[in-house]
Design a protein around this nucleic acid. Structure first.
Lengths: 215, 215
DNA sequence: GAGCGCACGTGACAAATGTCAACCGGCCCA
DNA sequence: TGGGCCGGTTGACATTTGTCACGTGCGCTC
């Protein structure tokens, strides 16, 4: 993959070394080009998947990792979690197309310092990279508001787990088998989950939970 | 990038006028910047939603409209359809994150001349814009292969319609009311659709149909 | 025009699903 | 220590859903 690292000509101080990870080449390339216009930023590595992002991070030790939420292999939050452990000096931030409230919560729990939708401008993104690099946090106000209004998941661990198993439309019997539970028990959890989400049935419940990012 | 002489040709000639429509500012802006590097392309308008794209197209009369598939208001195919009617001189192409086979079919039926995933490079995109502007068609080979292997939808119009109504997990009674049909009839169509898609039940059927782009 | 295939539409019946009341065990607090 | 509360677990029962057999009408072929 491309390696734009240029030796020491950084004029004034050291530039902020950035890792870009996004599976859509078009966007990643375009982003790299735009960030290159900023004098104090330097894109040192690019990756198209989660594992590749990790490898690149280890090889190039960036100051800030800009990760797409949805990538093949590992998603952005998973990468951030491993980065936190393996390369604590590297700040992480997530960029996402359509952010769900639950993702934000998960990301913050993983130690991510920035969370922005792809609707921001490149200018703004550059500023946010600086903010994050300075040790501060930045969360898109709209996403934050959504997350707050959506609140915490009312589901118990078991309910969420069974809802997950129900997500692909499998019949109760199959879910029961996969969870090693009696069918009645499964029905009960799903019923309870649906009630908490004020959904008509488990399928609608799955939809609601997904929307809120609780799944 | 390079100073590659581009189709040198219309020295002083007219550039290809391009409309960019994508709801993600980051990507749209970045794309505009990259396409600006091409000597023979000129981004004359940008839009962040379906309706805005139409308005922009009417105002600026571009040669090629590059449309994101998923946008607020109207999706890319809907915009392409209206463009075809209102501005026949304008070629349309769709750019999409994760393309489903059915979308491609729908797009081609709407007169779209290019269909590419966002994993292509900007360089490649520029070439494709030229291809489309020259009156030719371009479809990403991988997406085309998927579409062919997925084949046509086996669903009848009625089945697809009811499956659509069932998509949000509504109970049969509600679907029946919305479709002005007897509940038994609704069950029958959905059952038939599920059988054709070899799905366990209507919810799984919705998932399968969505995946294949038949919904 | 008769026969055939296909999509539409319906109701009866069986199977799957959702609702309810109940039991058990751990935890907190008086 | 005992009681109340919460989450996990289960089976009985009513409702919803899926399956089946049936009838209708349209367009095609022979």
């Amino acid at each position: 993959m491309s390696d734009h690292e240029r030796g020491g000509t950084d004029g004034g101080g050291r530039r902020v070394r950035v890792l870009l990870a996004d599976d859509e080449h078009l966007i990643r390339g375009a982003l790299a080009a735009l960030l290159a216009l900023e004098n104090d930023l330097l894109v040192v590595a690019e990756a198209a998947s989660g594992p590749e992002a990790l490898a690149m991070a280890r090889a190039h030790r960036p100051d800030v990792a800009v990760l797409d939420l949805q990538m093949p292999g590992k998603d952005g939050v998973a990468v951030a979690t491993e980065l936190r452990a393996g390369l604590p000096a590297c700040a992480t931030m997530i960029v996402t197309g359509h952010g769900r409230p639950g993702h934000l919560k998960r990301a913050l729990a993983a130690g991510v310092r920035g969370f922005v939708p792809k609707t921001v401008s490149a200018q703004r993104l550059a500023e946010i990279i600086r903010t994050v690099h300075a040790g501060n946090r930045y969360v898109d106000p709209e996403l934050a508001a959504d997350a707050i209004s959506a609140g915490d998941s009312p589901l118990t661990a078991r309910e969420a787990e069974l809802l997950e198993l129900a997500a692909d439309g499998a019949p109760i019997a199959e879910i029961a088998a996969r969870a090693a539970l009696a069918p009645g028990t499964v029905r009960n959890y799903l019923s309870s989950a649906a009630a908490k989400l004020s959904a008509e049935n488990r399928h609608a419940a799955v939809r609601v939970a997904r929307e809120r990012g609780w799944l």
